[in-house]
């Protein structure tokens, strides 16, 4: 059981990463990777939503009428997302403003529904909770990596603090404005996949 738990927790972080391996949940979130702070809050929100929704659906799994299964799941997920959104608006207002509609879009983030369908419906609440948390974390990891590169190269800052010293700018260095633009998030993600699949050759396609 313990080894199983460990597997549930660790697999989604790297080997079975929801973004780079399962191609789930790219939708709502790459637009929030311009700055590390937004990406981190988004990652935490997704971790909480996937964990708790998996937990609740798993608790209900034997009672849900099959015909309205999808709607029931959507309602549970939407409830979690609204709670997260309300809490952010109350305690981290400026971040919630920059994330705007993307918090709401966690509802349709395929990771949440994907893990509920694939795992929570057939497993006990505690492993489902762990599975949800771990998948959220695997997703968050990619988000944070992409945001780190984009903020560092695009604005020369980390968490809004300047890290590239002035003398480098004086020597003629300029921030790469391209990094701030939305398409770069996709290209960087392509590079992350490239690196991961160079290390783990069994993931390569064809």
């Amino acid at each position: 059981m313990d080894a199983n738990m460990k597997e549930t927790l660790l697999k989604p972080i790297f080997k079975g990463n929801p973004i780079t391996v399962l191609v789930l949940g790219i939708c709502s979130s790459l637009a929030v990777t311009v700055q590390l702070q937004g990406a981190l809050v988004m990652a935490l929100s997704v971790i909480i939503v996937t964990g708790l929704s998996s937990f609740v659906v798993s608790l209900l799994r034997n009672t849900i009428p099959n015909r309205i299964r999808i709607i029931v799941q959507l309602v549970v997920v939407a409830m979690m997302v609204i709670l997260v959104d309300q809490v952010l608006k109350a305690f981290a207002y400026s971040v919630s403003k920059t994330l705007s509609v993307y918090i709401g879009l966690i509802i349709t983030n395929c990771i949440v529904m994907g893990r509920i369908e694939a795992f929570a419906l057939g497993n006990k609440p505690i492993p489902s909770l762990l599975d949800g948390l771990a998948n959220g974390a695997g997703y968050g990891l990619i988000l944070v990596v992409v945001a780190f590169v984009r903020e560092l190269l695009g604005s020369g800052t980390i968490f809004g603090l300047r890290v590239i010293p002035q003398f480098i700018y004086d020597a003629g260095y300029v921030n790469n404005g391209l990094m701030i633009l939305p398409p770069m998030a996709l290209i960087l993600l392509g590079c992350v996949i490239w690196i991961q699949r160079s290390i783990q050759k069994d993931l390569q396609e064809k």
Partner: peptide, 22 residues
């Protein structure tokens, strides 16, 4: 390149299309 096949190159293609759309 083998590690980029499929998903990887698709992401990069979408990124380049996005730049074109800009």
């Amino acid at each position: 390149p083998a590690p980029l096949k499929g998903l990887g190159i698709t992401f990069i293609t979408v990124g380049l299309m996005g730049i074109a759309f800009m």
